[in-house]
Design a protein around this nucleic acid. Sequence first.
DNA 1: TAATAGTCCATCAATACAGTAGACTTTTAT
DNA 2: ATAAAAGTCTACTGTATTGATGGACTATTA
Lengths: 136, 136
Amino acid sequence: MLSKKAQYALKAMGYLAAKFGEGPVLISEIARKKKIPVKFLETILLELKEAGFLSSKKGKGGGYFLETNPTKISLAQVIRIAGGPIALLPCVSLNFYEKCKDCDEATCGLNRAMALTRDATLKILEKKNLTILIDG
Amino acid sequence: MLSKKAQYALKAMGYLAAKFGEGPVLISEIARKKKIPVKFLETILLELKEAGFLSSKKGKGGGYFLETNPTKISLAQVIRIAGGPIALLPCVSLNFYEKCKDCDEATCGLNRAMALTRDATLKILEKKNLTILIDG
DNA sequence: TAATAGTCCATCAATACAGTAGACTTTTAT
DNA sequence: ATAAAAGTCTACTGTATTGATGGACTATTA
């Protein structure tokens, strides 16, 4: 299951993708339209900005906006920032790898099985970009 | 991420699959070999039994065992019992569906995207059976 | 210089997860 | 019969994560 944080991140990015090229969008507008708690959204957008996926402008007329074309950002990238691992086990995660404490990866059947599903999921999430998130 | 419970369930089922046809296996043996806390494993095996995937025998010489051929049980079935939803969002879950409170599924871009990954994941997890979990 | 809007820090409540304890029941071997 | 073995059942507990909030601070613009 995706965390709320990851869901909100994806929804917010979808909203900004729909408004790509139209200048800064208020946090409060995104929050209202996508039904996301404002303060929670603040922290999420900030993280996405620090990760380089968003830009922001302070002061009047400010807000958040995409600088990159939405087709260039994959769902996998957003999920990794906001929601952590995509793989079903740490020992098969590419970006959040952790060694299994109690089993040998070379012989572990579970490891092999989960590596397969990771590949299948990533194939989708890395191919699909933000434009698929635009409502309608 | 899979919960520990789901991981343990899969590992235990893999162990029992390897011993298919050899009669009852002690909880304590599974726990020792697969490094699973005994009492935790008890509850997991009980749930799997209640779901119809395992049988047990009490008393001396008792234990847990598969009655069904391990090729007949998919990873998806085990995960659903022990770990809940496989889909990344409740609103695209087949077995644990919950309606989104704040968005319309017909127009929600996120819903569409997650339905795609659900299909990709299920295609793997429903095809692979317990034999893939046998170590070696 | 006042209003606007993002930034940052600290904290909190609820929930779920992981694991533990112990009494009880069934079965088998002697 | 009876003792030992082994699964069943109920209840509880600590901890970490998640989701969310409040408030002070800084930058920008009109």
